[in-house]
Amino acid sequence: MTNIKMTVNGKSVSGEVPDETLLSEFLRENLRLTGTHVGCDTSQCGACVVHVNGKALKACTTLAASLEGAEVTTIEGLANGGELHPMQQAFNDNHGLQCGFCTPGMIMTSVDMVNRYKAEGKELTEEAIRDELEGNICRCTGYHNIVKSVEDAAAKM
């Protein structure tokens, strides 16, 4: 067992968990932050993506015990009070989701993507968006509206 302390969505949290606990399990089961979804056993679907120290990681392939002192942001931490993050708003406006299962991971991946492209001063083309979403699988939308949502949000972020 390890006693871990980290900051999740700006709040400091701690818990005594078995060392094999995945970050996705810690978030969902210990903290009851069930917005982070788990869609596969193979680290391939991206439903579980959260930000750790500012980078998009698969929570299902990260040990909670390795994140002592880390800053974690989940989908629950993105909105500013009642005001949705521009990426959340864009998914809403552009019908970027249907069942919504993949959406938390899509949004966390997309926020990281837009921030990274802006920081590097690179143009985020449609092709680049599709390439960057390689690790996020959606069974419903066919992706077109997700790409539109990201383009829309990128213009507003």
């Binding site: 680290s43 980078k55 998009a56 990681l57 698969k58 392939t61 991946t109 960057e132 390689e134 690790g135």
Partner: peptide, 9 residues
Amino acid sequence: IGDPAVRYA
């Protein structure tokens, strides 16, 4: 290699 999350880790 892989996807962005794989490359970060």
